[in-house]
């Protein structure tokens, strides 16, 4: 079990190293950093001095090592555009995205699991069939269309919810939250639903098919043959076995919710990381893009580590053997 954890950690570190290298390469291949900083009329001598001062003359491995050391200390460089530390820029935007993503993930997980189990148990029920048909919409409609549709109904027609921004936020140390004010909560509703919709339907359909699969296994039949009540069979025997494969997909999906909230943030003009990234791409602000890339990498790696830990909790076969996951 220790070996299993260690291996996961080493893998995570390797992945982060690779992501950092790609981020670092962006500085060299996406535009010329000197040209981005100095004006049009700078002399060749000015450029060479700046290049030396910034350490761009050093060999690449040295530069990469310095980049890594700085990044590890939270120094991600200065934004070309705004002239402020990238770390500070990310820090300002982080709470908005995390709040949005975590609430969406929670909604997708809770509702997706509940509906998935329900549609599996009442496989032939009318309501289950209606839910399954409706979920096709969720799987096939693009996110921005759902967002725009929600805005049209609830902001334009009904005028219940604001169509953009976070509303009033409350500052708690370096964190800002919209959960403590009414306008903040109202602003969250539509972006959260929009972002959660696809994940929700995906988790639901996955849970349903896995659950149906597990319900056909011999140990479920044997549990029925022992007179174990259906409720216990569904929620104790079947659900936990269902969770093993579901956790993998869900983990990856939750990572992408945090990482790729870009579309939803753009539709709702949400002041989060995704919106910051879109702006940076438009003005080729390489340090911000590189930092965002590493952030996304970090999110995936952390989520994967957590997924591995959940595996260990769920499946005793992994705990006793130091073997890699069976599936």
């Amino acid at each position: 079990m220790i070996a299993y954890l260690l291996r996961s950690l080493v893998q995570a570190a390797l992945v982060m190293l690779a992501v950092a290298f790609i981020a670092f390469s962006m500085f060299r291949f996406v535009g010329d950093p000197i040209a981005s900083i100095v004006g049009q009329d700078a002399t060749l001598k000015d450029r060479q001095e700046l290049s030396r001062a910034l350490g761009l003359d050093d060999p690449m491995p040295v530069q990469f090592a310095r980049f890594l050391a700085n990044a590890a200390q939270g120094d991600l460089g200065l934004s070309y555009r705004q002239g402020r530390p990238v770390a500070a820029l990310l820090g300002e935007r982080l709470p908005a995205t995390i709040e949005l993503a975590l609430l969406s993930a929670l909604l997708a997980l809770v509702v997706g699991l509940t509906l998935g189990v329900y549609t599996a148990i009442r496989r032939n029920g009318l309501l289950a069939n209606v839910i399954m048909s409706a979920s096709l919409v969720g799987v096939s409609l693009p996110t921005f269309l759902i967002g725009i549709g929600l805005i049209y109904i609830f902001s334009v027609e009904l005028r219940w919810l604001p169509s953009f921004g976070r509303g009033d936020v409350v500052r708690l140390g370096w964190w800002t939250t919209g959960l403590l004010t009414e306008s903040g909560r109202k602003s969250l509703v539509m972006p959260v639903v929009t972002l959660a919709f696809f994940q929700l339907t995906l988790i639901m359909r996955l849970v349903r098919s896995e659950m149906l699969e597990v319900m056909r296994t011999e140990y479920v039949r044997f549990a029925r043959a022992r007179g174990i009540p259906d409720r216990v069979i569904h929620f104790r025997h079947a659900l936990r076995n269902t969770m093993v494969p579901v956790v993998t997909i869900t983990g990856l999906q939750l990572g992408s919710v945090i990482a790729f909230a870009i579309v939803t943030e753009t539709v709702f003009n949400w002041p989060g990381l995704g919106a910051l990234f879109v702006q940076s791409v438009q003005v080729v602000d390489v340090p911000v893009m590189a930092a965002y890339l590493m952030f996304v990498g970090l999110v995936f790696v952390v989520v994967n580590l957590l997924t591995d830990l959940v595996y260990l909790m769920l499946d005793p076969r992994l705990r006793s053997a130091s073997a890699a996951p069976a599936r």
Binding site: Y219, R224, A225, R226, N241, D315
Partner: peptide, 25 residues
């Protein structure tokens, strides 16, 4: 009938490798 199963009629299945839930002691 559920109350009869396990209580008054016990059943043994063919494959002991798949008859037990792998996640519970």
């Amino acid at each position: 009938m559920r109350r009869v199963r396990g209580k008054r009629i016990g059943m043994i299945f063919q494959d002991p490798l798949t008859s037990l839930n792998p996640l519970y002691r």
